[in-house]
């Protein structure tokens, strides 16, 4: 009820008809003082309630998700020069739920060293549809808006604004691991496959 009080004090200049007749200066100041106190205290209560509520509501912005390390498989199982679709099952924490999630990634092994490995995020950089590798034309093709990427993830057609996102990866004891935090690339050199 207090919050709905009129914002302008002008409507009620005086406490009441009878009082106005004999109203002294002191009476007016008491009224003003009480009105100020009312608005100050109401604001204080409002702020006290808003801070935790707004902070709680904005929680998802304030807290970022934690990336995890995922085992993708033995390095030797990935062919050289052909993007390979990998599917992994991992435990993911979503708020209060720990869920088993299946996730995919595209792994490209450019050569037989540990450095020539790219792990692509499986979503088109346009609007996030799942793309696939077409071996006939040697392109990643997105079914939604016909976005096309070459084997290095560089845009070669359609609306995608940037090259395919990648996951940081690492080889330990002959096993390929990736970190579940995609990284964006602004530009791309479309070198030979």
């Amino acid at each position: 009820m207090g919050n709905e009080a009129p914002s302008s004090g002008k409507v009620y200049k005086a406490p009441g008809g009878e009082h106005v007749a004999g109203a002294s200066e002191r009476d007016i100041t008491r009224r003003q003082w009480l009105a100020r106190f009312f608005w100050a205290a109401t604001s204080l209560v409002g702020v006290g309630m808003s801070v935790p509520v707004v902070g709680y509501f904005l929680g998802p912005i304030l807290k970022a998700g934690r990336p995890t390390d995922v085992k993708l498989g033995k390095l030797d199982d990935f062919p050289i020069g052909v993007p390979q679709r990998v599917e992994v099952t991992l435990f993911r924490v979503n708020g209060w739920v720990t869920e088993q999630a299946r996730q995919i990634a595209w792994v490209l092994r450019k050569n037989d060293t540990n450095d020539g490995i790219v792990v692509f995020d499986p979503h088109c950089t346009h609007l996030g549809c799942a793309y696939h590798w077409s071996d006939d034309v040697k392109q990643f093709q997105c079914p939604c808006h016909d976005g096309r990427f070459d084997i290095n993830g560089c845009v070669i057609g359609g609306p995608p604004p940037r090259p395919l996102d990648t996951y940081p990866s690492e080889v330990r004891d002959g096993v390929l691991y990736a970190v579940t935090k995609p990284q964006r690339k602004a530009s791309c050199q479309s070198s030979k496959a």
């Binding site: 207090g2 009080a5 009129p6 009620y12 406490p15 009441g16 009878e18 009082h19 009224r31 009480l34 009105a35 106190f37 009312f38 205290a41 109401t42 204080l44 209560v45 006290g48 309630m49």
Partner: peptide, 24 residues
């Protein structure tokens, strides 16, 4: 009632003082 003071700000300031104490 006619001899009394209007709800705002006379009674209402007392109400909000009590509310503030309870809230704190």
């Amino acid at each position: 009632k006619e001899a009394g003071e209007p709800f705002y700000p006379y009674s209402l300031s007392k109400d909000v003082a009590a509310v503030l104490i309870v809230f704190v």
